[in-house]
Amino acid sequence: MNAIAKPHKVHLIARHAEGMIWLARYMERIENMARILDVTNTFARDADDTRNWLSIPRINGDLAEFYKKHPEATQLTVGEFYLLDSDNYTSVQAFIAAARENARTLRALIPTEMWLQINVFHGRIRALTVADITPGHFTAVCAMLKDGAQAHTGITEGTLYRDQAWHFYMIGRYLERADQTTRLLDTRFHSLAPQSDAVDADIDAGQWNALLRAAAGYHAYRREHPSGYNAQEVASFLLANTAFPRSVGLNLAQAEWHLTQLRTRYFLRMPAALERLDALNGMMTHQNVAELAGRKLSPFLDYVQREIGSLHQDIVGTFGG
């Protein structure tokens, strides 16, 4: 009687798993940067132009670096810093370079179509010049960046083989989205909410629009809350909503699902990450957010960001060096 051949075991090189996480994170960062620049350019051109543009280096913790190079925050200086300046490691130039380098490392693992699109996208971003970020072209450049990042997301969804490598990729994407939403909320909330615990104070509706649009959540929010804006509800929407694709809670829940899949299907044990994720996930409830609203929100968001960073380390630390 012929023995049934043992299935061929497919291993994933640990370094490649980490590369998948980073590839996803950098591509997400490009989309996110494009969203924030676009919304700032379009919806936040009111009384305090400088404060609006300055919010972007603040989100990214880049204030010191930014002021080293530019005396003030304008559409042109912020645009240059984030769209053209390859020395700035939080620019889209740096993001696409890092994404492409990871994709190059993973080229034997990812579909040709994924690599090809990243490579072409890289060429397009590298070719950007000062002429492209002038007011007349700014929106088009942001649209190009969003299109490129979303094409990547679509190609990945449609072509990337769903084995271990895919799970790591998805974990990277969800961690990054969660992280970006906390940053967006943090700075905007900081500048929008009055410096008191009275969170329901009268805040310019245009500003709330901008915040929600940057996270692609404006219309969904309107549908959920047709009566108007409320700081606590906006925070809850971005942190705890279970249907909104960029809410922190939803992204953490999806990251948790992928970690669980790695455990049950591939027997990869990452207890520290799962425990941390479970605890963090438990905090993303409406009730909890309501209690945190106001001054306590900002330290909470800082905490969540640190935890997301630690999660990344937990995961790569499990099989790293």
Partner: peptide, 20 residues
């Protein structure tokens, strides 16, 4: 596709560093 840093020799055999 591996690099030298992905491989190690232990117990006289050659191994690659994988997620598991």
């Amino acid at each position: 596709l591996v690099e030298g840093r992905d491989l190690t020799v232990e117990g006289g055999k050659v191994w690659m560093r994988t997620t598991s």
